[in-house]
């Protein structure tokens, strides 16, 4: 371990810490809804307040996102790797579940209390 190694470690820690703080500022409050996008386009926005099963069937494949107890989690995916099913449930603003093969991003949007975030209409599809 040399001096420059230590500098590098400190730099990475600072960068991670800075990004983390910035992320917290952007809102760690509990989110109001989950926005699902497929291939960069909004597929739908679903309230986290009511339990529901969201089926996301596209030409790329099948996914099932489940909302229970104010949290969303990917429970079904017919992609080859299935990493999205292993990702933690999401409830805080800007947390995401990503399914790369199916180009799906589920992101928590619109914290219940902050107004700086534009809250999209919450529709149960």
């Amino acid at each position: 371990m040399k001096k420059k190694d230590i500098i590098l470690i400190v730099l990475v820690l600072l960068l991670a810490g800075g990004l983390f703080l910035w992320r917290q500022m952007a809102g760690a409050k509990e989110g109001a809804a989950v926005r699902v996008t497929v291939n960069g386009e909004v597929y739908g926005v679903y309230s986290l307040l009511e339990p529901q099963d969201i089926v996301i069937d596209t030409e790329l494949g099948h996914n099932l996102l489940q909302i229970r107890d104010g949290k969303a989690v990917m429970v079904e995916a017919d992609c080859p790797d299935g990493y999205c099913r292993q990702q933690s449930s999401i409830r805080h603003n800007h947390q995401t579940i990503v399914c790369l093969p199916h180009k799906i991003v589920a992101e928590v949007v619109g914290s219940g209390t902050s107004t700086d975030e534009q809250i999209p209409d919450v529709v149960a599809k």
Binding site: L19, R23, T37, N39, G40, H94, Q95, T96, V98, L100, K103, V105, E107
Partner: peptide, 10 residues
């Protein structure tokens, strides 16, 4: 690929 910056959360 996802055309989304959301992944930078992590």
């Amino acid at each position: 690929v996802l055309e989304s910056g959301a992944v930078f959360y992590y």
